[in-house]
């Protein structure tokens, strides 16, 4: 569904991604691990059209999408859910969700997706009129994921959903990710603080210093001493 071939990305003069190649098949959950600051977020942002300088080849369902902006990509069904949530603080929960359905292709499904999202996060249904800035970290995280779902995406790139989350909510996040995937949405998740999410992965990638240093199944990863260190280092 998503295929990266030798992708390079830069911020100003800083070369972040170096010849990254990876693939996410339709219906899969792919999880990316790796130390902080080594470019995991940049991979997601590069796919979703949020990095200016990208070279190489990024394909979505066979189509070349390299260099397209987020407006086009969201419309095509590719949505990014940010680690720092990036909500609209002075807007209500409902307004945040409605803006999630801003793209042309999502508008027709706004009502249907709103119901879906409220079923997934009943808390948000009760708090529709609350301002996003007054929500707790956990609720804001749910809202960020819900807003991403409103785009009617077929592919979601979820960036560190555990960031700023109380440990007891991690189970819930893992459950929600499983449910989202169960609805047929393909997922690429950057997350290493929630073992339950790693458990869900069809494929694991490890990104170190801007390069893919490992690709394989969970079983392969557990047999790899270097990776074990990363896992145990959690």
């Amino acid at each position: 569904m998503i295929k990266l071939t030798d992708v390079n990305a830069c911020y100003q003069d800083f070369h972040v991604l170096k010849n990254v190649s990876l693939a996410v098949e339709k219906g899969q959950i792919v999880v990316m691990l790796g130390p902080n600051g080594h470019g995991k977020s940049t991979v997601l942002k590069a796919i979703c059209g949020l990095v200016k300088k990208v070279s190489g080849l990024i394909r979505f369902e066979g189509e070349n999408i390299t260099g397209l902006g987020s407006e086009k990509l969201v419309d095509m069904g590719i949505t990014y859910i940010a680690e720092n949530r990036e909500l609209f603080p002075q807007m209500s929960v409902l307004e945040n969700l409605k803006l999630g359905a801003y793209s042309r292709s999502a508008r027709a499904f706004e009502k249907k997706n709103l119901e879906k999202v409220f079923d997934l996060f009943p808390r948000l249904r009760d708090r529709q009129s609350q301002l996003a800035s007054t929500m707790s970290g956990g609720e804001a995280r749910m809202l960020a994921i819900a807003r991403g779902l409103m785009s009617n995406a077929r592919f979601l790139a979820i960036d560190e959903p555990s960031l700023g989350l109380q440990p007891n909510l991690r189970d819930e996040v893992a459950k929600i990710i499983k449910q989202i995937n169960g609805q047929g949405i393909t997922l690429l998740v950057v997350e290493q603080n929630i073992p339950q999410i790693t458990e869900l992965a069809d494929t694991l990638y490890v990104l170190e210093e801007g390069r893919i240093s490992f690709e394989g199944s969970k079983e392969d990863a557990l047999g790899n001493d270097h990776l074990k260190e990363i896992f145990l280092g959690m």
Binding site: L50, D75, A82, L99
Partner: peptide, 10 residues
């Protein structure tokens, strides 16, 4: 309110 958020939702 949030230019980065606006870009994310397209």
């Amino acid at each position: 309110q949030n230019p980065a958020g606006a870009q994310i939702v397209g």
